Amino acid sequence: MKTPVRRGFPAGRRATTVLAAAGTMLAGTLLAAPGAHAADSDITFSDVVINKGKPIVLGTGAEVEVPLTYTVKTKVKLDDWWVSAYRGTFGQNEYTLAGSTIQWSCAQSSAGGYTFYDCKESMFVDPDAMVNGRTRVNGDATTWKTVATAIKIGGGYDDDLLSYTTRLKRASVIEGADASPEPVTKGKPITIKGTLKRANWSTHRYDLYGGQKVTLQFKAAGTTAYTNVKTITTTSTGALKTTVTAAEDGTWRWYYAGDSVTGAKATTGDYVDVR
Rank of each mutant, 00 (worst) to 15 (best):
M1E: 13
V5I: 13
P10G: 08
P10L: 06
R13S: 14
R14K: 10
T16Q: 14
G35Y: 08
A38F: 07
D42P: 10
S46R: 15
P55L: 02
G59E: 03
V66C: 03
P67E: 07
P67M: 02
L68H: 10
T69S: 12
T71P: 05
V76F: 04
V83E: 04
S84R: 12
Q92Y: 06
Q103K: 11
Q108Y: 07
S110I: 04
C119N: 09
C119S: 14
E121H: 01
P127K: 08
T135W: 12
N138S: 05
T143R: 08
V147E: 07
T149Q: 10
K152Y: 10
K152D: 11
G155I: 00
D159V: 13
Y164T: 14
R167A: 14
A177M: 03
S180A: 14
I190A: 10
T191S: 15
I192C: 09
R198C: 12
R198Y: 15
A199G: 07
A199C: 03
A199S: 07
G210S: 05
T223M: 02
T223N: 03
T227G: 11
T227L: 09
T235A: 12
S236F: 00
G238F: 00
T242V: 13
T243Y: 00
V244H: 11
W252S: 07
G263P: 11
G269S: 02
V272D: 11
D273F: 14
